[in-house]
């Protein structure tokens, strides 16, 4: 597959703060990538570096296999970083035509892209009169102007109301369906789980995980159990041949096994031990739980 962006051992220091600490990654054409990480984990700094707004301390990155200079390559990228930045005194259409001039493309795309994000009616309103949701949609229209090879979105739903979040997600899904490569930085996990095929997890500037979403979610799984006598239940679970761990979670017990077993077998075992459960469920951890486990266990 064609490489869109390749980062090798990237570092960024702000004084004593090591904001990006040896990140390496490869973005391939056609995938939708999510970058996950708590606030301050280096997501935006990494994106800032590859977009030439932040100076790297060391390391390397190349766009499109290094066939073009970074400056030329960025013209083929569509990006929104953190908040929508436009000239408040210009109208939506004027702002987009300015972006066309910067990217060196004809202004014919302005109307088309405003239509995609549903701002056609407001094209002649000044940017400062827009709501945050509209501003964010204008930013997406602006990023799409050049029909980019890759769309970079940094927290696109930050600060929006549920309706706004939904609109933005619909737009992202629409764009993803056209085969555009997308890089979505977010701390909203369900967002990433819903739209992304690949995921990168960052914490304190280091990469903890890189792979597909399904690989990250795939794991042993666990049982949730409840019974009238939780103490007795726990004692019996500890005697189970495949016992690995048992924790109490509110009025339930969470039981993990060393190999996969069927829920029916566990039920049968407990029944044979004279314990009758009031609740038994086999669960797989969500991306959120996986993410929390990953970021908690990594002692950084």
């Amino acid at each position: 597959m064609e490489s869109i962006l390749s980062i090798k051992n990237l570092h960024k220091r702000y004084g004593f703060v090591h904001a990006v600490n040896g990140i390496s990654l490869e973005i391939k054409k056609g995938n939708v990538y999510g970058i996950l990480g708590p606030n301050g984990s280096g997501k935006s700094t990494t994106l800032g570096i590859v977009l030439n707004v932040v100076n790297k301390t060391s390391g390397e990155f190349t766009w499109f296999d290094g066939s073009q200079s970074t400056h030329e390559a960025i013209k083929k990228v569509g990006a929104i970083i953190e908040r929508p930045n436009f000239y408040p005194y210009m109208t939506a259409a004027e702002n987009l035509s300015l972006v066309c001039k910067i990217k060196g493309i004809p202004k014919t795309k302005v109307a088309e892209k405003l239509e995609i994000v549903g701002l056609t009616e407001r094209r002649n309103s000044k940017f400062r009169t827009f709501s945050l949701g509209m501003k964010q949609r204008l930013a997406i229209a602006s990023a799409l102007l050049n029909d980019p090879e890759i769309l970079i979105l940094d927290e696109p739903t930050n600060g929006l109301d549920p309706q706004g979040i939904h609109q933005i997600r619909e737009i992202i899904r629409l764009i993803a369906s056209t085969g555009t490569t997308i890089l979505l930085a977010s701390h909203l996990l369900d967002e990433v789980e819903k739209v992304c095929s690949h995921v990168l997890v960052l914490k304190k500037g280091q990469m903890l995980y890189s792979g597909t979403v399904s690989d990250m979610v795939r794991s042993e799984g666990f049982f949730e159990l409840a019974a009238n006598d939780l103490v007795e239940l726990e004692r019996k679970l500890r005697l189970h041949p495949y016992f690995k761990s048992v924790d109490s979670a509110q009025d339930k017990l969470v039981f993990t096994t060393s190999t996969t077993i069927a829920a029916a077998d566990l039920n049968q075992y407990l029944a044979s031990e004279n314990i009758f459960v009031s609740h038994l469920a086999f669960k797989k951890p969500s991306l959120e739980e996986q993410f929390l486990t990953l970021t908690k266990t990594a002692n950084l």
Binding site: V53, I74, A79, I81, N85, V99
Partner: peptide, 10 residues
């Protein structure tokens, strides 16, 4: 914030 945006736009 348009200085940053201009740079991102190319």
């Amino acid at each position: 914030g348009t200085l940053k945006q201009n740079l991102i736009d190319g």
